[in-house]
Simulated scan of single mutants.
Amino acid sequence: MLEQPATLKIKRLRQRPNQAQIDAFQGVPTGFVADAMDGIGAMHLSIQALGVAEGLPFTAAGPALTAYNGPGDVLATFAALSFIQQGDVLVAGVDGYQGCATVGDRVMGMAKNGGAVGYVTDGPIRDFEGVAKVGLPCWCTGLTPDSPMMTGPGTIGFGVNIGGRQVETGDMIVADRDGVVVVPFADIDAVLARLVDIKVLEATLDKKVEEGLKVPQNILDMLDSNDVKYID
């Protein structure tokens, strides 16, 4: 490389969902959101809610603030603390590097103090006891005591690929015990519109199951059709 890259590259202009859009995703299960996106949108299952068994909080829904660090580095994540807005989910990419932690309890505490409602990364974290005390919901790949570097280069506000999904600042992040779903900014209204129907369908099927449903009618119809060949 002939020129030394800037230590940090920060995107000034941020697209952001309005408050009504953000509010509409609160408490919505990730499965509903994924269904509203035709069964896609979830990050890889390696990114899981931290501390569910210990009773830590494991739901969050808010606009993504992206930080790309590169493997083994956390400078962009630290710098992103200056740009958190109330209700953001801090999404920190490290190219899936598993050799050291992406944050610890102090960064999580500062992120929460700044208004973040969740933290998502494709690497591990450290300081479990301290993170549990902070109480900021976290999705990560696990735990490690090893510490990272703070050298850069990194970016804030630009796209980051994490868990098999491209995440842009301003995309909606919806996360719970099942995992993390990314709703692209441009698709937010369409997904919310589909969620209205999905909630009705889910409630209807729940009621039928509670009333004793054993097999869905469409499956019974298929089993009684020419689409199935029975062999004695």
Rank of each mutant, 00 (worst) to 15 (best):
F58W: 03
A79E: 15
A67M: 11
G142Y: 09
V117Y: 01
I125K: 07
L81M: 13
G115N: 05
G114I: 03
D88E: 03
G170A: 05
Q85G: 03
P145I: 05
K133E: 15
A67H: 10
D178A: 13
G164L: 14
G130D: 11
T59V: 15
T141D: 04
L143G: 02
F128G: 03
C140K: 01
A101W: 01
M150C: 14
A64C: 01
D171Y: 01
V117I: 15
M110K: 03
G70Y: 05
F78K: 05
T144G: 00
F78E: 11
I84N: 05
V131T: 14
T77R: 02
D171T: 05
G93H: 04
D176G: 13
G99Q: 09
M149P: 00
G179Y: 03
G115E: 00
T59I: 08
V160Q: 09
M110V: 08
G87Y: 09
V181F: 01
A60N: 04
K133D: 10
V74H: 05
T141P: 05
C138F: 08
I173G: 04
G70K: 08
W139I: 09
S147Y: 13
V183D: 14
T155M: 11
R106L: 15
V120E: 07
A175L: 07
G157D: 10
W139A: 06
A79N: 08
V103D: 13
A111M: 01
T151L: 12
G179K: 07
T144M: 02
V183H: 14
G72E: 12
A132S: 15
T144K: 06
A175S: 06
G142K: 10
L143D: 06
T141S: 12
V131D: 04
D171A: 00
T77Y: 06
V174Q: 06
L75K: 14
A132V: 05
